[in-house]
Design a protein around this nucleic acid. Structure first.
Lengths: 241, 241
DNA sequence: TCGTAGTTACGTACACCGTACGTAGTGCGC
DNA sequence: GCGCACTACGTACGGTGTACGTAACTACGA
């Protein structure tokens, strides 16, 4: 009975290589890399079990020996790119600087892999590289004397904030990618629509904003400011004297 | 020629009712409500064109008279639930209080509709209710004397932060929802795995954290703190005297 | 040493998906 | 009242995730 088990499980709890039987032709890493390659070049929606199998050169159903569900394929992908973090030998001692640098790395990672932010909405952070990342964060936060639970919250909020920022920045580009027109066309159509709506009088504040001469805002600056303030919100108040 | 157009377009730019021809049997609102009903009860993955059509009692392809692409169905859904915002007659004058209240409403909304946070990753905020929301936000921020572009960033960051928080809180529940086991089973399997990994010695800080007596952290408190700090990060420094 | 049980590989098949296309009927604008 | 743009929707196609069955293979227990 049973055959392929349907118990609650985490893919990382499975040994990569079982004792008996022929040795697997691929490693998890091979599979993850193939999927990442496809997602990077053709977008997340191009990542299908068939396509990944083809990229590897094996039969579709063979993949299910490695990956019980497609969802777990995403887990593999997140783990693979999480390996790109450059984590120094040891924390600097300045937890704010370390966490800020980490946030920048995450943002860069999400730009290198435009599908990452969206997938992270679905992944569960138990992979080896995710744990390595988490452990590193906790190491950075060692000098910070707050509840352990708070530290986890801090880490989650920093990651979440980066994710939110990037998702926001990428929404337009991502839509254009999967539709048969360019980002510029899309943008101009949206701008025109917005102007028309604002002119309708239903949205006076929006109209005012659109009418005002727009001074470009530097997203990097906002990003840094936000992360800085977020970190501050977790630090105990500096009660000098 | 052309038939159904494939130009770059926003669904909200299409008139809901065309001049000629028989009057449509449903409104956009009907369709959005049906989709929301399905997503609320059976999860986002249950929302298919066929299923929504069935819920409405019409043929599948009839839906395409109203919704050119499935993606636009999501747009309709977000618009529909965005209508649940309770926006007072006029801002209070205290923009921090107004934005904080709004953030709380958003969080509540995302708990009422567990699919919302994930879909917002994909939607584009040009719907009538989204514009109504945006305009209200800008009204709240009227007393705040900063660049208009910065105000948009502020709004985006507040929404993004709420989204990040909720996605983080819901990840586990969402996974359990779509798999044939309970959230408790999933949680215990994950906890066991985590403990095992921590015991392996590869993650010393994580091990330490898990060993420490855990004091429960109040997520609401963190949420409030984070939003407050975020708002502060956009306010000009209070240069008293 | 040799079954044999557990694995790997993978072809076939199924239910479901989004949606292109064609056709029939309806009612507004000219 | 003619014509045409619109609504309705059945059929069909190419894709998806994956259950299941089968054949080959290998490490372990006897």
């Amino acid at each position: 009975m049973a055959g392929r088990a349907a118990e609650p499980e985490v893919i990382w709890a499975r040994p990569e290589r079982a004792g008996r039987g022929p040795r697997p032709a691929y490693t998890r890493r091979d599979i993850a890399d193939a999927a990442v390659r496809i997602a990077d070049s053709d977008g997340l929606e191009a990542v299908s079990m068939r396509r990944v199998a083809a990229e590897l050169g094996c039969g579709t159903m063979s993949l299910y020996n490695y990956v019980p569900r497609k969802e777990d394929l995403y887990e593999l992908m997140v783990d693979a790119v999480s390996g790109e973090y450059d984590l120094p030998e040891k924390p600097s001692g300045d937890w704010r600087a370390d966490m800020t640098a980490l946030a920048h790395q995450t943002r860069a990672l999400m730009y290198r892999h435009p599908w990452l932010a969206r997938v992270m909405t679905t992944a569960y952070f138990l992979s080896p590289n995710a744990l390595r990342y988490l452990d590193w964060c906790l190491g950075c936060l060692a000098p910070l004397d707050i509840e352990p639970g708070l530290k986890m919250q801090l880490i989650a909020m920093v990651n979440g904030t980066v994710m939110a920022t990037v998702v926001n920045e990428q929404a337009l580009a991502e839509r254009a990618r999967s539709l048969p027109w360019t980002e510029e066309q899309e943008q101009s159509v949206r701008a025109a629509y917005l102007a028309r709506q604002a002119a309708g009088g239903r949205y006076p504040h929006l109209a005012e904003l659109l009418a005002a001469p727009s001074v470009p805002v530097d997203p990097d600056e906002i990003f840094d400011m936000t992360i800085a303030r977020l970190l501050e919100s977790f630090a105990p108040p500096v009660t000098g004297a």
